[in-house]
Amino acid sequence: MNDALKLALEGQLGPRFRLLPDGRAWLAPAGDAELRMVVTQFHRFGEPLFAHAELYRAALGGIGRVEPASGVVEADAGVTLAAIDRAAEPHGLTVGALSPKAYALELAAFLEGPYQGLRPVLGGRLEPVCLALEAVLPDGIPFASKPSPRSAAGPDLDALILGGEGRFGWVSRATLRLLPRPELTRRVVYSFPDGALLARAARRLLSAGCHVRCAWAQQRGGRALLELELGGNAECIERDLSTCSNETAEAGGRASGQVLDDAPTGEERELSWPEVVRELELGGRVALFRLSTEAVVAIGAARGRRLVNGQAWASAGAWEVLAATLGGPASAPSGVGE
């Protein structure tokens, strides 16, 4: 990192600037204006902020009023998902069924990082938890999108920042869409001839609109076991139980009284369903979160995408071109195309 840049940041941030042992800077802007200043300085000196600094946004720690009719809330970048969830609780709302690690993340890390700001919604789909974003673009210019449930007003520009690890913008605040908090939860266990049929049933009941909050899967005695946690009001749960029992039977499964082993521990990874099947075939057991028909976040898996920054991005060429044209770092992002 350029010495002149270090001096400039030190002068402007004082104790909120430190050098880390690995030579990168630790920066803790006190608010929006300082965040913009920091990003602008890096841009001025032609240094990629994401590569040379750790941006700590805990000072951006406000949670706005929960708007009860729409169920939306504004939150600053440094607030954890767990804190937002607690703020939503009195209104009967929640940020959604996330994985344990995701709840512990600060909003900025959840949106910009490997979780890509996604949560599951009915129908087996994923959607960004944010309805709109406020961010600082790599050249220091503020960016704000308009809150709308869906839009056809051009491409979704928020998508550039979600999962972007700060390469195309740094989140300062977001408007989040909350979901109804389940009044009840209920667990139910099904047994299948094999992991592939378990995965087929799971995807079909998600596609049908069941409210699955999380699940556990393991192989035992030549059969694949799936424990589901359903959430909602009593009527929702009854409907979902009926659908689960149909889809399970279609896949050759049946209800089971077995108790699964203790929940696995370890890091969270994102797995496709075929990868879940492979885990089971190899005798693994996994806890499944953020379930969609596309992919899940799992604990206990040995394969799948590690949910940490710095992984290689797909479509590397496209991102290099975008980084070069969107006022981003002069050189190609280091993690891209590896």
């Binding site: 890509q116 550039l160 999962g163 596309e294 799948g304 797909a314």
Partner: peptide, 26 residues
């Protein structure tokens, strides 16, 4: 150039969402 967007799981932003809605301009 032909561009193919990845399927989940993938790291990085969702390229498909940047192209959808572009109305032939990209």
């Amino acid at each position: 150039e032909v561009l193919a967007t990845p399927e989940r799981p993938f790291s990085g932003p969702d390229l498909a969402q940047l192209l959808l809605g572009s109305e032939g301009t990209l």
